[in-house]
Design a protein around this nucleic acid. Structure first.
Ligand SMILES: [Mn+2]
Ligand SMILES: [Mn+2]
Ligand SMILES: [Zn+2]
Ligand SMILES: [Zn+2]
Lengths: 142, 142
DNA sequence: AAATCAATGATAATGATTATCAATATTATG
DNA sequence: CATAATATTGATAATCATTATCATTGATTT
């Protein structure tokens, strides 16, 4: 379930998109910063280090495109900007959010299988994805 | 765990805030629209019906205040505005989000108790709250 | 090479939220 | 009661993340 450039290239071409140098760079930035949950602006800053000519609009467009293709997905940590991380499909994780310092910790998801089935039956709803956030106090902030 | 006006009045006065007519009206709008997950603008529209003189800023301020006091909490359904609902403390619920039509369905939360304990031990994190969203297809959209 | 289509960069526009500030209401004080 | 002090409000301006626009550039096809 690890994402690699080749796989994304495939996804792009299947959908008649091209792997441009800008898109490749943005992808690499995201891959090299797993667990950092970068925002568009933060990605833009890093992207400019490698290619100062790149435009902010391209970053936003690429993030939108990668989201559509399921390469990445958006996160919301209540800090009024969207954040992004690679979409690892099945073996995904969720987040602990420290309400004091804002630190984000990841934890693996493994418990919701049977719960999903209950939900599907009880509400006639076909679950395709889910997201869990725990709020509380990290080690430093207790 | 049902929220009522008197209780909120108490919370306000304990923290040296006053229950003004505007605040009471906004609270009632939210209480009379349980399950609707109104945004600030939507609340503003309903508030104006009863009191056309009220300002949008007051709505935002009041929502902020109520959030701080734990009377309500924010929701994010990925539609680029914040939505609000009463905070029922312990007996809370979570949301199913139809990715096709956007319908929101509520479901009760009862499974995460033991999971929380695991999390707390494994990550040295004291959980105070959590939020779950399931994405998928509602009955109409399957 | 010319024509066609996709992608980009610069920049303007949008829209939700926040900040400002003068006016008004409420409470405390003499 | 009158007045000072404080809290709240409404109007409006500012902010800032995100989107839209559009001319330019790059790639692909004929
Ligand atoms: Mn993560
Ligand atoms: Mn709800
Ligand atoms: Zn912390
Ligand atoms: Zn639906």
């Amino acid at each position: 379930m690890t994402v690699d450039v080749k796989e994304v290239q495939e996804k792009l071409s299947v959908n008649n998109y091209k792997m441009t140098s800008q898109r490749k760079l943005i992808l690499k930035i995201i891959m090299n910063n797993e667990g950092k949950h970068l925002s568009a602006e933060e990605i833009y800053a890093k992207v400019k280090e490698a290619n100062p000519g790149i435009g902010l609009a391209t970053v936003y467009r690429t993030l939108e495109l990668f989201s559509e293709l399921g390469v990445i997905h958006q996160l919301n940590f209540d800090d009024n900007c969207r954040r992004y991380e690679l979409d690892h499909g099945e073996d995904h994780h969720h987040h602990l959010i420290c309400v004091k310092c804002g630190e984000i910790t990841e934890f693996n998801d493994y418990i919701l299988e049977e719960f999903e089935e209950d939900i599907e039956k009880e509400h006639n709803f076909i679950v395709s994805d889910h997201r869990i956030k725990f709020y509380g106090y990290c080690g430093n902030c207790q």
